[in-house]
């Protein structure tokens, strides 16, 4: 039994906005409506402030290079030249192909193994409770490690495992770096999340595997979606590992290609802004798609009610 998104909205509306509220609560109702309008306005204002710099980049990306330092507000000479430069010199197909491949493998493997680990860390009884919480802290401590400490040893590990020069050279450290982050989110939410439902499932005779994948996982959809989004963004923007571990021009990633572009057109700011816009757009689309999953979680959560 699944409720749709509109059902939920209807349901929430019935509690505060429809006519079912008693007469004497009317002033409260108008106050609420006013508050809703005010908060909407605040939301728009904050969004506008956050977006302003983005609009500035987009404007600059259409400016001829001479204008950027001299007369950036001019709207008369806008041009597509910057985009033509970028499209002409960035290996778009290659860089997106490589990055998507790396991201798909690293993020799916990373999320899967983090999920099972987090499940074990929050839902299973270890013989010693201390071991469980120490393991969690052990993994979470990884959050504090700056990437530059890792470059040299990881390079040697890649050589030792014979994966240097392959996609795995990047995928392995990407998975490793994502584990503490994923664990923080997953264990945090799993602890916040009530376990009665699982108990019910256990009573119904569900095995551990089924419990983990078919009962808990769907309920964690908003969190998993969030993790997927962040991990994909991480892989798209990761630069230090990529610059050390990729030697082959055929294997460039998005961040590597963009940084090379930047190195190559050091003062072509228009070009750089166009490159930034071009890289930003597909990622915004990915976010918008995954975000649907975050919202979808609401309906699942409502089922219980």
């Amino acid at each position: 039994m699944r409720t749709t998104r509109t059902d939920v909205i209807d349901e929430s509306m019935s509690t505060d906005l429809t006519g079912t509220t008693p007469e004497h609560q009317k002033p409260k109702r108008t106050r609420r409506r006013a508050a809703a309008i005010a908060s909407g306005a605040v939301a728009y204002l904050i969004t506008f402030l956050v977006v302003l710099p983005l609009l500035w980049i987009v404007l600059l990306s259409f400016q001829p290079s001479g204008n950027i330092l001299g007369n950036p507000f001019s709207l008369t000479n806008l041009t597509l030249d910057n985009y033509l430069t970028v499209i002409g010199s960035l290996p778009l197909l290659k860089m997106y192909g490589n990055t998507v491949l790396i991201a798909v493998v690293a993020v799916s493997v990373g999320t899967a193994i983090s999920f099972t680990a987090a499940f074990a860390l929050t839902r299973m009884i270890f013989r010693h409770r201390k071991v469980q919480s120490s393991l969690r802290f052990y993994i979470l401590a990884g959050l504090a490690v700056p990437v530059y400490i890792l470059l040299f040893p990881v390079y040697r590990l890649d050589l030792a495992f014979g994966v240097f020069g392959t996609y795995a050279a990047l995928i392995l450290p990407y998975i490793a770096v994502s584990i503490p982050f994923n664990t923080l989110l997953l264990t945090g939410f799993l602890r916040e999340f009530p376990s009665e439902l699982e108990e019910a499932a256990i009573i119904d005779g569900a095995g551990l595997g089924r419990l983990c994948w078919t009962v808990v996982l769907p309920l964690m959809r908003p969190v998993i979606a969030t993790i997927l989004i962040f991990n994909v963004v991480y892989v798209f923007n990761e630069f230090p590992f990529a610059s050390i571990l990729i030697n082959n021009p055929d294997m460039v990633t998005v961040s590597l290609a963009v940084s090379r572009f930047q190195g190559q057109y050091t003062v072509d700011y228009g070009g750089m802004m166009a490159a930034a816009t071009l890289v930003l757009l597909p990622q915004l689309v990915i976010y918008a798609l995954f975000q649907k999953q975050v919202i979808a979680g609401m309906t699942v959560g409502a089922v219980k009610g």
Partner: peptide, 12 residues
């Protein structure tokens, strides 16, 4: 999505 925009851009 728009508020999330900046988080997508590479820090550099």
């Amino acid at each position: 999505a728009l508020v999330f925009g900046p988080a997508i851009i590479a820090p550099i």
